[in-house]
Design a protein around this nucleic acid. Structure first.
Lengths: 194, 194
DNA sequence: AAGTTTATTGACTCGTCAATCAACAAAAAA
DNA sequence: TTTTTTGTTGATTGACGAGTCAATAAACTT
């Protein structure tokens, strides 16, 4: 009963299964068999479509990154003032879609993956640069000379909040994270604009 | 040529070798054989002294945590004002001993380990609670009601800076990290003390 | 109708690795 | 001196997992 045009469907199923399995395992110690089983196919098929485990991981990473990117882009498009743009980035970073256990766990493990796999390292660098330039663009008009260090600090703070969310038991508290970021921005901007 | 009293010596060698190997590999995908070889002994001996791989990892984690803890304690002991205590924590967090590639890499991977191994989870929780209460004690007199959220944010920021240091190629820049933390504290405290 | 491309899997290979064990050696205790 | 404790390793076991392959079948092409 083989139907044609399965490739994209299978690939997507594998990518989603990978994220779920990494979330469950809490690490990259996930077998191709586990991923394939969850995606409802044999391991051979997974290899057939992706060629290897590393490619599956990279595709999963690309998937998460692209969802996040799309959300940020969408939110920025409707934001008119620099303040609104800054807030849009913060909100997107901790939205229900991104700030979920599974996704956070995957994120953490992609950092680990980036230490070994050049492709992962590169993907993560792209994400960081994009975040930084988005932050900078929003901050420049309202933070003056402070913009650059502030953007760096915000990036690190966002990553840190993600990291800490991994350890907690319950569901991650996106609202608290958003308030933490907003409070910091407010504190920095409230002083003299230099 | 077996000498007596080897146990502590062997254990320490294994712990140090573990940290080095995790740093090299950039992940927990490190074999007992690699660790044992670097520590100058057979894999059987490593198992003999620790009983298993997990115990070796936990010992390595305890080692890093205890060095960090000792450094913070030492710095706090000589700091007399709340401001000095706060700065002492910041300085210790990014000291040359702690803010090194190997150690940072180990740190990141211990976060991953904590998702799977209850013992690791517990160790990390202890560290986080201690850091939080140290920060809180220093902040309370100078930050008033802001102290609690500020302590949380600083903890997250420190972790975030660590996380980002992992990705960069060159040696981590402790000085820049210290300045980022100081600027953060300054910005938050500069407003009305509420 | 014959041939080609796409989908799919069970079975297999090959390597790796944690853990165990039997055996040997030296010091300490008896 | 015999026995026990401590240190040490090479060799082996047993499990698991990534990747390959041959085989089967449905759909599309000519």
């Amino acid at each position: 009963m083989p139907k044609l045009g399965m490739q994209p469907i299978r690939k997507e199923a594998l990518v989603k299964a990978t994220i779920v399995e990494i979330g469950r395992a809490g690490s990259l110690d996930v077998t191709v068999a586990q991923i394939a089983r969850r995606a409802g196919m044999s391991t051979a098929l997974a290899h057939h479509y992706f060629g290897g485990k590393e490619a599956i991981f990279l595709a999963a990473m690309r998937h998460i990154l692209s969802i996040y990117g799309a959300e940020v882009r969408g939110a920025l498009a409707v934001a008119k003032t620099p303040e609104a743009r800054l807030d849009a980035i913060i909100l997107a970073s901790f939205s229900a879609a991104n700030f979920r256990r599974e996704v956070i766990s995957a994120w953490l493990n992609f950092y680990v993956l980036a230490r070994t796999v050049p492709g992962a390292q590169q993907l993560l660098s792209v994400y960081q640069r994009r975040l930084h330039s988005n932050l900078l663009a929003a901050l420049r008009p309202i933070a003056g000379a402070k913009a650059v260090p502030l953007a760096h600090a915000m990036g690190a703070l966002i990553d840190g909040v993600y990291l800490r969310a991994v350890l907690r038991d319950g569901p991650p508290d996106g609202q608290a994270a958003i308030e933490m970021l907003r409070r910091y921005v407010a504190a920095e901007l409230e002083g003299r604009p230099e």
